[in-house]
Design a protein around this nucleic acid. Structure first.
Lengths: 232, 232
DNA sequence: ACCTGAACACCGTTCAAGT
DNA sequence: ACCTGAACACCGTTCAAGT
């Protein structure tokens, strides 16, 4: 396997800092998120980030053990933007829908985060907060024991699994227009009649709305399925 | 954004090759998959792969335009291992379940593929074949028009969204035992009572079987939800 | 306590040169 | 037609040295 055993920023004691330190971790993370938003995951290098902060490339290692830790920090920042509705206010189905759409929107706002989902440990305070509130929703819906967790995993799996490729399509589209893109896929699908039919069916609509329809279709199906479980 | 507009190996004319060329693309891809299986995505470099083939690092560029193309090729190889059951033999629900479990098993066998899912274009013949047959299943189930595609997207989103983090856990566990891991997560979750409860509930069972239960829970829910859609 | 630059061990890719 | 090595422009990270 590729990755090191296990480690996380959130499990180390942070460095004690004096009253007025030169730079702060918050400042660095904010700059990192900015750079990531602008140039994507591959656009972030320690040297570039250092330069952006008017510092030597290696100064950052005072605040952060390595690049992975920095990414963990930036990643948790994204989770901080997700608002999880209260099931007492809107009922569990509406709460779950709003949450799902909110997660999707947040990821689309920070496309680079899709590259980290499920790959980086999510142990930061913001992801913990979201996880905590997701459990509350499914508890309020009436689920118990392991099922509470299973519901949460199922929901996030769906949202992530749907959004990750969506981002890939959006970014890889680049400047190409829809017609060009369809021809591209048609060519690749040439030997597969079902796929060709699929491409042609999808090609009618505006890609953005088709994606939203698709997201909604799966979400509603999932909610129906969970509801059935809950009742039994 | 980070990535280049759009390009894929599958959209270029392959190089004409003489009767007995020095190396073949197949040989290179096979070696790449082997290296990826052994050392993960970060373990594959053009230099290492070249060395493994007893060639200079840059010889590979004769057969492949760049590393991304090589990954596309290797990725499609993985799709080639997925077998999609025929709905005429087993009925659509069983066909979908078997497919879902098969996809999961294939990804677990090649953990590096999880790092490429949804990030790399999947336009190769093997992924097209799988897509084609997935559409056949949902057509056989009675879905029509856009819904056929929506069903397919929903299913793959679920399987991928569930399996990607599963791999991250497996690899990051490394040599750590379960108790250690649970303490780690407990520490991170300290401030969130719901999460703590979740950790404790999950901690009872063997991780592998809990993951399988979780996968099955979501899959059955999803199937129930789709069935409801189909009926309406 | 914080920051620096040089240095190490890597990358992917290009390209002129070889056979 | 195929392969090579040198070279370029990058990486993340370590570490002795500075203030």
């Amino acid at each position: 396997m590729s990755s090191k055993p296990f480690s996380s920023v959130w499990l180390r004691e942070p460095r004690k800092s004096a009253a007025a330190p030169g730079r702060s971790r918050e400042e660095i993370v904010a700059a990192a998120v900015e750079l990531l938003d602008q140039e994507g995951l591959s656009g972030l290098s320690m040297r570039k980030l250092g330069a952006r902060l008017g510092a030597g490339a290696t100064s950052l290692y005072w605040y952060v053990a390595n690049k992975d830790e920095l990414l963990e920090l930036a990643y948790d920042q994204v989770w901080g933007e997700i608002i999880v509705p209260d099931p007492d206010d809107v009922g569990w189905r509406d709460a779950v829908s709003a949450l799902a759409y909110g997660m999707r929107a947040t990821i689309l706002r920070h496309p680079w985060s899709a590259d980290l989902i499920g790959r980086l440990p999510a142990l930061g305070p913001n992801s913990m907060r979201v996880g905590d509130r997701i459990r509350r929703i499914f508890k309020a819906a009436g689920f118990q024991g392991l099922d509470i967790d299973f519901c949460g995993s199922t929901l996030t799996a769906y949202v992530f699994g749907m959004t990750i490729p969506e981002i890939a399509w959006r970014t890889s589209m680049g400047d190409k227009d829809i017609g060009q893109m369809r021809d591209t896929v048609r060519e690749a699908a040439a030997a597969h009649p079902e796929m060709l039919e699929g491409v042609d069916t999808l090609a009618d609509g505006d890609p953005d709305t088709v994606r939203r329809l698709s997201f909604d279709f799966g979400l509603v199906s999932l909610l129906d399925g969970l509801e059935r479980r809950r009742a039994s």
